[in-house]
Design a protein around this nucleic acid. Structure first.
Lengths: 195, 195
DNA sequence: ACCTGAACACCGTTCAAGT
DNA sequence: ACCTGAACACCGTTCAAGT
């Protein structure tokens, strides 16, 4: 806390630490609490020190999201049960995004932040669709529809912040959100499979 | 411009004017340009004067979105071709949301801003689904899936702001966005109809 | 390269006061 | 009720400088 440091004295900050601390700050204080200044304070550093490790706040948000996507359960992209594997992949993505649902709308707004993990997932999806005979333009559209539905569901599930004035009308549980998600996903996959 | 006004002198501002001006500001300057201060400036008024007509900025955003939804093409909620009518309804919603796509992620984040126009649309959807024999819990889930997909598609289509550093890789046209949207919607409706 | 102090150019919102 | 002036408590980011 009282750590005095003079200019030039390194504080042991890395990009990974910034992202990890951002995630913690996010879960504790919500999306409005995620500010560069609060993040710097947590790391025991001056606000502008962050700019050594991160280009902008928007880029940081992208990095947090992609860090989140690293937690998606791996599947076999050549699983002969392509529809089952695709369902599992999207379900895991949805679950992982729910962890920071508040952040997801920002993700949507930035058109998907094509970072490494997101790209890898996209490729797995195309592989599975190809196994099901869905290829070319149609595969691209199926991929887009699945992504939109999955990210959209997570964003839609974003809880209002704790001190909200919204009627306390028993927000749906994670379980219920997942069941709802599953149902729509099944409809979508059924449509795609018959294409 | 040089209109001097003393405290108490009304400026002819109404809630409707604030919303309308917000929409114009939004199309001209994008979502980052939509600030209370810029909006007040446009209306020739001090920033805090807006708080006579609007409770918070978040509420204003909700109002703008609902104002937007007023533009959705009316359909007959008892159309026997329920699937066609539902498709048309969602397509029109999608088109209208594309007008301020940048704003849509905020809409998602606020869980749908249940204002009057949004409610009316939701009821039409349930009516049409009932005509198709989809009722009760399943109807609720179909409604949710359709809304998530429609709003998600619009949000996903949000153009990066003009001065973006994103590779200028020929962003999809509105026509193409609509075709893509239609394809996924058809899949979803096919799945729902077979439920 | 990595950090600090200070500053710039903003925000949304509130408060007290005037008509 | 409707507006103003002034202020509060913040923001993200940049610049110059120090090691």
């Amino acid at each position: 806390m009282v750590e005095r440091r003079r200019p030039g004295q390194p504080a042991g900050i890395t990009h990974a630490r910034v992202v990890a601390e951002a995630r913690e700050l996010l879960t504790e204080e919500g999306v409005d609490g995620l500010t560069m200044r609060a993040l710097a304070h947590r790391l025991g550093v001056a606000p502008n020190a962050l700019y050594t490790h991160v280009r902008t706040k928007a880029q940081l948000v992208d990095d947090v999201l992609d860090d989140l996507l690293a937690g998606v359960t791996a599947i076999d992209p050549d699983d002969p049960d392509w529809r089952g594997a695709l369902h599992a992949l999207m379900r895991s993505s949805h679950a992982v995004l729910l962890e920071h649902a508040e952040l997801v709308p920002l993700f949507l707004a930035r058109r998907g932040a094509r970072e490494t993990n997101a790209q890898r997932l996209g490729e797995s999806m195309l592989r599975l669709l190809a196994t099901g005979g869905v290829e070319g333009r149609l595969a691209r559209e199926a991929q887009r529809a699945l992504i939109v539905y999955t990210i959209g569901s997570a964003a839609f599930a974003a809880r209002p912040p704790l001190g909200s004035n919204a009627e306390t009308e028993a927000l749906p549980s994670v379980d219920e959100l997942t069941r709802n998600f599953d149902q729509g996903l099944a409809w979508l996959l059924a449509g795609i499979a018959r294409a």
